[in-house]
Design a protein around this nucleic acid. Structure first.
Lengths: 366, 366
DNA sequence: GAGGCGACTGAAAGCGCTTACACTCCGCGC
DNA sequence: GCGCGGAGTGTAAGCGCTTTCAGTCGCCTC
């Protein structure tokens, strides 16, 4: 019925194969091809087989743009991260990408280095719903109304690092992380504690508060209080950690410091090094993440599976996309199992008063 | 003439504004709106103004899927990197993303952790031309025929780290980098040199060979030869660097080592640390990149602007997309100015025989 | 003052899919 | 034996743009 365009274009490009060609080849209508190829019901098994065979043989791939326009779904997920180049975020993205690509979704990345990028992306009528079926927001301080507005526009939302509304969220049990760090330092006998945490930075999210809370509560349980002036912002970056530690050392230095991320901890180690202070002896430092280089500098840290976090968020997002319930108002709290974490003790922490129990300085060398 | 759908949908979603609505509002045809909004010629200034005003007021944004389908261009760029989570690649991606997003292009990322991913992406008739207008291949060993086939399908290609065919490429002058590293070590009097380089890894690209060549030639010029057994693969990863240095130290250790990336250098420092060897005293180590943490561990390195490399590649790619010449066969070598690099001397390198010229060990502590 | 040329605009034909709806069978219950 | 429902399929109407082509003017040239 439908003539196959044989060779009206003798030109350069090898004539793209369309659904029509498959339909002609399998001697069915394009509707049937579409249904057969997408696994929809109401297609006879024999027909489906014939169609898939022809499609395979012709190397047919549906045009994504056409499918998007017709179906209104994009098969695309957007990952929004504060800063693409940082270790933590790039690993989260890696996790998201692995899962989504595997599931046949395209992954669009957006670096929100300037906060305006996020606003432009979400707040405006930027037709995000036309670009993606879902968004993963990583450690971004987005008001929950914004997320709500996204969902209303049928864009599923998942977050990493903090919970917004009822949307699937992968969040570490931050108070427990803080408590674990405190416990570790307290066990070593430390009582003069410092904390290097958040802010210092446009990206003000809740993680640092939660970790700080857990840390302080644990200290309190041991009768130890953390002085307010020993809680310094580090912006979750290397230089911020350096600056924070410098401040801490300036006046009445603590004997142990909890840095809320390994990157800040590395900065803190730099500040120690500059003053010829020995990590784990003069000042103990504990981080969070188990960054690849924590091992290099012998940093004690609280490990989490960052790639796994991204992957979990992506899986939850895809589930939400597929499950229409989530797009409606009566979505139930989409619980995602909180990721595991564990203490990795290395030599950057040690007993108070630096009693050199066999440890030598060089064992902490890079 | 065209009735504006007032409220046939009393439903939930706030009725998306289409080009038709703008046309009606500005009292012109949709064709004119399309032309006016995209800055095409042959639109009266007054008309254009009216159209843009109405569009602005209505908050109109063209539907990307529809535009793609109709125009055949996607306004999308794909960044393909071997491994999303690594420092180098994530920074290249950050550079690409910044430029492309700024230019209104979407950025799709693909991690080619498994080589099959690349093949699937490029080799197959995966309709890459339907997904993107251009691709940036970062340090991927793609045969130049593949790139050619992409271009024939009207997908522009740019590369980072190696040149393929005539396509725009951002490549460091690797032989010069190698020579610079050699020069630095030779100046310190080192004659027993080791190299930690590529392979060890599925990703076999040309960079290590080029750096090695420059390194050896420079040595040769000084009458120094690098023994073959002192050239060890490190796969451009931390653990590879560690393993490589371990091998080097096992038997007749060199006094100085050129690691072709900072990440490998960090691994090398770990291996030294394990043996209580002091970087810059017992063994000198020089890296490449000026990784953020090079400063932390006082690693001497050859700095390059990684983000800038990604950005430059993206700019070249966008230029190629816009310039039709590039899509044809007679494209002239698309030269991109090779990125700058410079030596950053820190304490991980020092005079041979470890003559402690004032340097103290602790100055090299993390 | 007629012809011509550009500048501007609009009508309409797609782009390549998805999907509502209509239709044809065929087996079944009564 | 007849009506009925459901499985399987086809027809055709879009999805919301872009772009060709065919005008319509106003102004210049000869």
């Amino acid at each position: 019925m439908i003539a196959v365009g044989t060779d009206d274009t003798n030109g350069e490009a090898p004539r793209r194969v369309r659904i029509e060609d498959v339909a002609a080849g399998a001697d069915v209508s394009v509707a049937t091809v579409s249904r057969a190829l997408r696994g929809l019901p109401n297609v006879a098994a024999s027909t489906r087989r014939r169609v898939t065979d022809v499609a395979e043989q012709l190397g047919y791939q549906p045009d994504p743009a056409a499918a998007r326009l017709a179906a209104g779904r994009t098969n695309t997920v957007i990952a929004v991260v504060p800063h693409l180049g940082s270790w933590y975020f790039s690993n989260v993205v890696a996790g998201i990408e692995a899962v989504c690509t595997e599931a046949g979704y395209d992954v669009l990345v957006i670096g929100a280095d300037e906060p305006s990028r996020v606003d432009r992306l979400i707040d405006e009528r930027a037709q995000l719903d036309r670009r993606a079926d879902g968004v993963v927001l990583v450690d971004l301080p987005v008001a929950s109304e914004l997320a709500e507005s996204l969902v209303q526009r049928r864009v599923a939302v998942a977050t990493v690092g903090w919970q917004v509304g009822d949307h699937p969220a992968v969040v570490l049990d931050d108070p427990a992380v803080g408590a674990l760090a405190a416990e570790h330092l307290l066990n070593f006998g430390h009582r003069d504690l410092g904390v290097i945490g958040g802010d210092l930075d446009p990206i003000a999210f809740e993680v640092p508060e939660r970790r700080l809370r857990g840390f302080r509560e644990q200290c309190h349980r041991h009768g130890v209080e953390v002085a307010a002036e020993r809680i310094v912002g580090g912006g979750f970056r290397l230089d911020g950690g350096y600056a924070a530690m410098t401040v801490l050392l300036e006046h009445d230095p603590p004997t142990a410091v909890f840095a809320m991320s390994d990157e800040m901890a590395f900065g803190a180690l730099m500040a120690l090094q500059e003053r010829r202070l020995k990590p784990g002896v003069d000042v103990s430092v504990i981080g969070v993440d188990d960054h690849e280089f924590a091992h290099v500098v012998e940093l004690t840290t609280i490990r989490q599976n960052v790639i796994g976090n991204g992957a979990a968020a992506a899986r939850a997002l895809l589930a939400a996309i597929q499950d229409p319930r989530t797009a409606t108002v009566d979505a139930e709290p989409a619980a995602v199992e909180p990721p595991a974490f564990s203490l990795v003790a290395r030599s950057s922490t040690g007993p108070v008063n630096g009693d050199h129990t066999g440890r030598t300085l060089s064992s902490r060398l890079p």
